[in-house]
Design a protein around this nucleic acid. Structure first.
Length: 277
DNA sequence: GTGTTGCCCTGCGGGC
DNA sequence: TGCCCGCAGGGCAACA
């Protein structure tokens, strides 16, 4: 029960960058070839061994590791993926599928219980062809994501607000936890039609998206079960969640009982009093 | 364009 | 205690 979303991936990026930027990948162990997409294990190994790590970046829920030369590692942690910088002498945990040996003697380990995570070897040129990555919507914390943009786009959509916010082509980086928290703060029921939101609700929604994500990052992400940052540390934002995973508990704003429904096949936690249909 | 379902996958919790 | 089953969910494909 955990899905690295924008704040978690941003935290992994920040913690890892301090540790691995400037190091060289001296070897790669691939235990689960299917984690790597579109490249054979042999080609992957050949492409990254002896190559220097230049910088890290994030786009939506994707982590990007830029290497010297043209290559970029595009990593999606999906549900249970972890990317941890660790001493080589540490025991290798179960479900460790990929190990990068680094020039400082440490290792960067990719671990994923459910094997949903993906590592794609791309170049600066092929980045724009990667399925899922190429169609990502705007970054919600960047300046091109404005209230006007949100209002304009919502008016065009005859779909329910929750599945829309989860759609990575609409906005990049939101997942189930942060969408539920956002909608609660904005007092919007998850099944409301996007095109029917009032200007005031849209303003609240815009503010809530930015606020929830910033607070998530400030608290180094949410750890329900699996998520840890690049140092292997858990986040703290789970302590500040108001509705997610709190079915049956009291709404911190009005005291009503938090309910859970399925919206678009996803569990959705909300307050039936604060968030009217 | 939008909605629904199923698949990928393992661990966990509930029921018996 | 141990087994079975359903659920959790991001992204994607297939289909309605």
């Amino acid at each position: 029960m955990q899905m690295p979303e924008l704040p978690e991936v941003e935290t992994v990026k920040r913690t890892l960058e301090k540790k691995i930027k400037g190091l060289t990948i001296t070897d790669v162990e691939i235990d689960m070839p299917k984690i790597i997409r579109d490249t054979t294990p042999e080609d992957f190994k050949k492409a990254v061994t002896g190559i220097k790590i230049l910088r890290l970046a994030r786009r939506g829920k994707y982590l990007l590791i830029y290497l010297s030369g043209e290559n970029v590692l595009v990593i999606h942690l999906r549900m249970t993926g972890r990317l941890v910088y660790t001493e080589a002498s540490e025991p290798v945990p179960r479900h460790t599928h990929l190990i990068f040996h680094l020039s400082d003697g440490y290792q960067l380990r990719f671990n994923d219980v459910r094997q949903f995570g993906r590592v794609i070897l791309a170049t600066n040129k092929t980045l724009s062809h990667i399925k899922g990555f190429k169609d990502l919507g705007p970054e919600p914390l960047e300046k091109d994501f404005t209230r006007d943009f949100l209002r304009r786009e919502l008016k065009r959509k005859r779909t329910r607000i929750k599945p829309l916010l989860l759609d990575q082509t609409f906005i990049a980086g939101l997942g189930n936890i942060y969408v539920d928290e956002t909608l609660h703060r904005a007092r919007i029921h998850p099944e409301r039609l996007a095109c029917n939101l009032s200007p005031r609700e849209i303003a609240n929604l815009y503010h809530s998206i930015c606020e929830v994500l910033r607070e998530g990052i400030d608290n180094r992400g949410t750890s329900m079960r699996d998520y840890v940052d690049g140092d292997g540390r858990t986040g703290n934002f789970q302590e500040f969640l108001r509705v997610y995973n709190r079915e049956g508990e009291k709404c911190p704003r009005c005291g009503a009982t938090i309910d859970r429904i399925k919206v678009g096949g996803r569990s959705s936690y909300y307050c039936p009093v604060c968030q009217k249909e």
